[in-house]
Nucleic acid binder design. Sequence first.
DNA 1: ATGCCGGGCGAAGCCCGA
Length: 260
Amino acid sequence: MKIATFNVNSIKARIDTILTWFKQAAPDVALLQEIKCEANAFPRLEFEALGYNCAVLGQKSYNGVAIIAKNRIEDVREGLPGDDVDDHARYIEGVVSTETAAVRVASIYLPNGNPADTDKFTYKLKWMDRLIAHATELRDYEEALVLGGDYNVIPTAHDVFDPTLWTNDALFRIETRRQLRRLINLGFTDAFRACNAEPHQYTFWDYQAGAWQKNNGIRIDHLLLSPQAADRLKTCAVDKHVRAWEKPSDHVPVWCELEI
DNA sequence: ATGCCGGGCGAAGCCCGA
């Protein structure tokens, strides 16, 4: 089973590009972030025409996450538990079943958190507390589980073109990285790092300052696997070529292949 | 470079992202 994560930066502005990628990459499951539309405006028909089902948690203008899958999506949960006041559309979860197995997946759009001396950073760290709490519950199901998405976290200095420029950024602050370590230390595996030791492999390049041309990127889109999923991991890769397409997202897809 | 680009909203210019 091929499972991908892709921050699309507006599904409406990029529907043709996204569908082209779906046809080429043919993921069994795709976890989308930043769809930037309400659920009733999501282009379901276009995905259904390619044989996919959609589970969507939308929001006007900002955020928005979705699960796109060839098989049925069951036990869908919308929103990250732990804060009834938080109305950002940043988390959706569901179970995708084949005839022989099932995998639970979540599409995560973790808050950016900049500027790092404001309540936006506090919101990010608290959101990560909630994610850790929920991931602890899911881990204890002892299922194949993939927590995929735009984490807005640079895990290590090997995952950024120039770490000295990012030391005080909310994506690389020590508090942020500590939270990601807490999550991983529950027993999750960073699928990309399990398959690729090469440093400086990126998933995001800013639109500005020729970041793509200079390869000034960061690795912030991740697939975290429960032990039961990690045991079935075959490969994990970044579809870097998509960043060179016309009108690209600033993120590219990351995907893994599980023996499921 | 705490916004150079790009999308949403809505019809100019601000909010937001990383």
